[in-house]
Design a protein around this nucleic acid. Sequence first.
DNA 1: GAAAAAAAATAAACTAGTTTAAGAAAAATA
DNA 2: TATTTTTCTTAAACTAGTTTATTTTTTTTC
Lengths: 190, 190
Amino acid sequence: MADYSILYSYFEHINKQPLTPEEMAEIHRVFRKNTYKKKTMVMKAGEANTLHYYIEKGLLRMYIIDQNGKEFNILFARERQWIGDLGTPAETPYFIETVEDSIVYSISEENFHTLYKRYIALANYIRKSYVFLQKRFVSILSKTAEENYEELVNDYPGLLQRLPQYQISSYLGVTPVFLSKILAKRAKKD
Amino acid sequence: MADYSILYSYFEHINKQPLTPEEMAEIHRVFRKNTYKKKTMVMKAGEANTLHYYIEKGLLRMYIIDQNGKEFNILFARERQWIGDLGTPAETPYFIETVEDSIVYSISEENFHTLYKRYIALANYIRKSYVFLQKRFVSILSKTAEENYEELVNDYPGLLQRLPQYQISSYLGVTPVFLSKILAKRAKKD
DNA sequence: GAAAAAAAATAAACTAGTTTAAGAAAAATA
DNA sequence: TATTTTTCTTAAACTAGTTTATTTTTTTTC
């Protein structure tokens, strides 16, 4: 039987106390554990009733494809983070794909909603996500791509090393060519 | 005594049933009603423990001033909408100012948190805000200013009429000069 | 470990959006 | 209603970032 201990420990963490056997059983029942190879599509634009994903291991990205076929990374999520379209159950415009081989737990919106009535701290994940997105939004709106790249390097040096450059440029909202230019300029300085 | 009926009707709406007298009393106790003249600053960057605001009448904007002193509008909120920094109680980087004469109810984070344990639907305001911001983020990231302006016109024609043009340009993340150019181009087409 | 495929770098011509400045129009105030 | 202040427009020179194309480097696969 699959090992759910990472998931239990997350709930114990947000719950701030050990789980009862019944709570464990419920969690085991409402989440499904899956393993995906690198570059596997986990969620697809156009789907409704999409799932929420909690990551045990690996790295995933959520992205959108615009009217010109260009991809924009909305979010990266790694170990012990959530990823999913909070707009569910409405039809999602986003894709989610693994960047590395990954192990994730998935849960339906219905069950997720039930859980966050019980674990109010879970509602905090949404709030934290909002604050994070708002900060990023302001950065994209008000700063140059070069400044945004510096911010990434400072805040998430470990994450950058796990991503190909063109995925980073897509997260910054610039072309790979332009990011390459920024890096060349940076390299000269040192 | 101040009239809180608009606020009560909001809670009845999210609660999906009439409020008890006790609930009304609690709401009356935790919210404070205020009237502000146009262009009054309601929240200031640098403050901690900022409040959440529910608007009965008028129009407010939340904005940030970047390192070059330039303003960027993050959010407009009007009748029957919330505005505030969800990052509270941390020190806020944002300002909130009235765009029109306004009547607002304010509530502390502590009381707000208590309420959203009771009215789970209130947590939904945060979630909806997230979905809204994500959509806007994608637009700013992937579309031209002209396309973003068209989107605004389609989605919020009434709101635009209540805002000076330079406030709209700041919301779109472009200079007033550039928005004026877009409008001139648009006017020619018709 | 050679071959193929994917990712990154470089260059040149281009475009969306900025900056500065000056004048025109609209709104607020005396 | 005249005056002052605020907002909007227009224009010209500029810059951040794009596009397309070619080459080099790195990674994957057989």
